[in-house]
Write a protein that binds this DNA or RNA. Structure first.
Length: 383
RNA sequence: GCGGUAUUGGUGAAGUGGUUAACACGCCGGAUUGUGGCUCCGGUAUGCAAGGGUUCGAUCCCCUUAUCCCGCC
């Protein structure tokens, strides 16, 4: 079996959907947030910690695993699940995003055949093609593979994006032609920046190729505006089939996830939860906070009192601040646990709200609180 | 007691008779969206031990005091 998406509920006021995605490594509900584990590990987190926070699926990366340790070694280990001892669903990104950012001279390095770029590890010259990316992912044996796409920013010109969309379609067809892992699903990627005509064209043509799921790419990079991101979603979604799962690549911040869900997106992934954790920041119901700030020096309350994660159940802000300033990695670990659980819990609440047809109310309440920037507890004292 | 050397921010320290006192660490704040695992970007001495003098002008020259270290009795 590859994967099977079951659409179980459409929310009455929005385009949001509730569903379940079956894979060989388990079934999870959507909408869902995927923690990112680029190099065959969600940084700082063990598989047990991921299970405990009810992670439904994680993301890993073709480019990084290709360079180190190499797909053959992982195949020898018995595939990615075996190798990293994670027995839940795994999606692998194709490397398109990394390669695009590593290609110095876009015009010269991105050719019809593939992309020339330099290794971020040793600077050596590398060449990645759609066929190679898919072959690597076949060997990694992830549950879902992504097509190899070109990933230009929304700020690129209409002309550039048009050619890019065409090329991404050809690459998608080439990748699909060589894909040969019967246990692995393959997703197509819609591109086209913030242009309605390009998104529509890209979506329709990609869907014609009949992939196992579809994603919206090219968003959340190069400092694009939120408006452009939302446009990219709005212009793509109407042309995607209802019976296939939809994945918004690289998103994101709680507000962007919410906007994506409302527009009909089922899957998200983002490095933010773990990256900002390593830099000392945490998501809370009242917005993002920086635990290194002086004001938390003697704050002996949890990062988020309403949170059920291991970090919030056992440790205080003052302690975590101390760990961060003392450069003790436990601080980063605890915040990684909290931030990732925060987004997963948010998705749980979103799914409930969809099933009960009260998503708009939920989102308004969540965002009002999240953007209020009030310190936890303040509003109680005032009322 | 005598002689000598030194004294620059929270720390280690550059530096010059002349506009905003280098750099590093620390500290304070910000950033982070298909991850290049301790990152990036800002801010941070109204003052160069204290007082007095020379000078148009002194952290830099001179004197006194305090403290530190070294040597001698």
């Amino acid at each position: 079996m590859k994967i099977k998406y079951n659409l179980l509920k459409k929310e009455k006021d929005t385009k949001a959907r509730y569903g379940k995605l079956e894979t060989n490594y388990g079934t999870f509900e959507t909408p869902m947030f995927m923690p990112v584990g680029t190099k065959a590990t969600v940084k700082m987190l063990t598989p047990d910690e991921l299970y405990a926070m009810h992670a439904g699926i994680i993301l890993s990366n073709t480019y990084h695993l290709w360079l180190r340790p190499g797909e053959d070694l992982i195949a020898k280990a018995g595939g990615l699940h075996q190798f990293m001892n994670y027995h839940g669903p795994i999606l692998t990104d194709s490397g398109g995003f990394q390669v695009f950012s590593l290609a110095k001279n876009k015009k010269k390095d991105i050719t019809e055949e593939g992309v020339h770029f330099k290794s971020h590890i040793d600077g050596s010259n590398l060449f990645l093609t759609p066929e190679k990316s898919i072959a690597i992912q076949n060997k990694l044996d992830s549950d879902i593979a992504m097509s190899f796409d070109e990933c230009p920013p929304a700020s690129a010109s209409h002309e550039y994006l048009k050619n890019s969309v065409e090329r991404t379609l050809r690459w998608a067809a080439r990748g699909k032609a060589v894909h040969n892992n019967p246990r692995q699903a393959l997703f197509g990627i819609v591109q086209g920046g913030a242009y309605e005509d390009l998104r529509k064209y890209s979506a329709i043509e990609t869907v014609k190729m009949d992939f196992d799921g579809y994603s919206i790419g090219g968003v959340a990079n190069d400092g694009e505006s939120k408006e452009d991101m939302y446009k990219a979603i709005d212009y793509s979604i109407p042309y995607l089939p209802e019976d296939k799962v939809r994945y918004l690549m690289g998103v994101g911040e709680p507000v962007d996830i919410i906007e994506g869900v409302k527009r009909g997106v089922d899957l998200f992934d983002c490095v933010l939860s773990t990256r900002i954790a390593r830099h000392g920041n945490a998501f809370t119901r009242h917005g993002k906070i920086n635990l290194k700030n002086l004001k938390f020096r003697e704050d002996f309350t949890p990062v988020e009192s309403s949170c059920d994660c291991y970090c919030c159940q056992n440790f205080t802000k003052a302690y975590i601040r101390h760990l961060l300033l003392a450069d003790e990695s436990l601080g980063q670990r605890l915040l990684s646990i909290h931030n990732t659980r925060f987004l997963i819990k948010m998705m749980e609440e979103i799914r409930e709200a969809i099933q009960e047809d009260r998503l708009l109310k939920y989102c308004d309440e969540f965002l009002n609180k999240y953007n209020s920037k009030e310190v936890e507890g303040e509003e109680c004292e005032n009322s």
